[in-house]
């Protein structure tokens, strides 16, 4: 790599790092505000609150029925992860191993739900789900969330499967393994890191997926992020600290999984793995 040592280059580098520092500082201060407020007894017009308390977590838990909301969230997320894994990995295997007419069209079909923002396709999707009576139910939320996650798993898994040598599978076939045995004993162990990474990313994305859940959820099928939206939307009804406590609970549920996911994937993959495809 080339490093300039002139004064101009140093000033330029300093300016850029200042910019990065400013961004990161604001980001942490924003998160810090939420966390501080959630532990505050009273916080008006001062740098820090007057006193500290944890009672907002109790009141948030009961006021917003967070127990139920969290249960629904994890049920939705679990179903989405399982189904998108099943549909996605099998489809990715076919796309990685076979060349056939219409494959490019099929890849485009799987690419579009990732490129088009959820709110754009969410409104027609919600309309269809309301017509079929699925919207407002648990399965309506799961189905809506699957629309972007199945293609996501497919596009993350294709390169993973492509790097497994087909000769290994051929060898297993020679020794008499059928397709099921091949999947369970040969492919699964080899693909497990990739599947795990893809499904963890699906998990994080589904917890944070606001638009689709918001458009199709009913009162009993809300996930945490939608409940948080309604709480902030109706701010003034509840104490600010109570909403902030809920926001902290949301942050913790998301970030725990993100930290686990980051042990398996490079952060840039969260954005680029699937999105980079159209460049080629």
């Amino acid at each position: 790599m080339i490093r300039d040592t002139t004064l101009g280059a140093k000033l330029w580098a300093a300016a850029i790092w200042t910019l990065v520092g400013f961004f990161v500082l604001n980001l942490f201060a924003m998160i810090g505000t939420v966390v501080t407020s959630s532990f505050a007894t009273r916080w008006l017009g001062t740098w820090l609150p007057i006193g500290w308390t944890t009672r907002w977590y109790d009141s948030a838990w009961s006021e917003f029925q967070l127990g139920d909301v969290l249960l629904v969230t994890f049920q939705v997320v679990g179903a989405v992860v399982l189904i998108s894994g099943l549909l996605g990995v099998t489809a990715a295997y076919a796309l990685a191993r076979r060349e056939f007419a219409g494959k490019r069209l099929l890849v485009l079909l799987f690419l579009l739900p990732l490129l088009i923002p959820p709110i754009t396709f969410g409104i027609p999707l919600a309309t269809v789900l309301y017509r079929t009576g699925l919207a407002g139910t648990f399965w309506g939320v799961v189905v809506a969330n699957l629309v972007p996650t199945v293609p996501f798993v497919i596009l993350v898994m294709i390169p993973f499967i492509e790097q497994v040598d087909p000769k290994i599978e051929a060898a297993a076939r020679v020794f008499g393994a059928n397709t099921f045995k091949l999947f369970v004993h040969v492919l699964m162990p080899l693909l497990l890191p990739g599947i795990l990474a893809a499904l963890l990313l699906v998990l994080v994305r589904t917890i944070a997926m606001f638009e689709l859940t918001f458009l199709v959820a009913g009162p009993t099928s809300q996930t945490l992020v939608v409940a948080l939206y309604y709480a902030v939307f109706a701010a003034g009804v509840r104490a600010v600290q109570s909403i902030d406590a809920m926001a902290v609970i949301y942050m913790v549920t998301t970030l725990v999984w993100l930290i686990i996911a980051l042990r398996f994937v490079n952060p840039t993959q969260i954005v680029t793995r699937a999105k980079q495809q159209p460049a080629h």
């Binding site: 990161v24 604001n26 980001l27 201060a29 924003m30 998160i31 505000t33 939420v34 407020s37 994080v204 944070a208 997926m209 606001f210 992020v225 948080l228 939206y229 902030v232 701010a235 600010v240 909403i243 902030d244 926001a247 949301y250 942050m251 998301t254 970030l255 993100l258 980051l262 952060p267 969260i270 954005v271």
Partner: peptide, 21 residues
């Protein structure tokens, strides 16, 4: 990793945080 945080947390949480901040 730091920069992935706001993407992961999503727009609702960022809106809630910025409202205070």
């Amino acid at each position: 990793t730091i920069l992935v945080l706001p993407i992961t947390l999503g727009t609702v949480l960022v809106a809630e945080g910025l409202l205070n901040y």
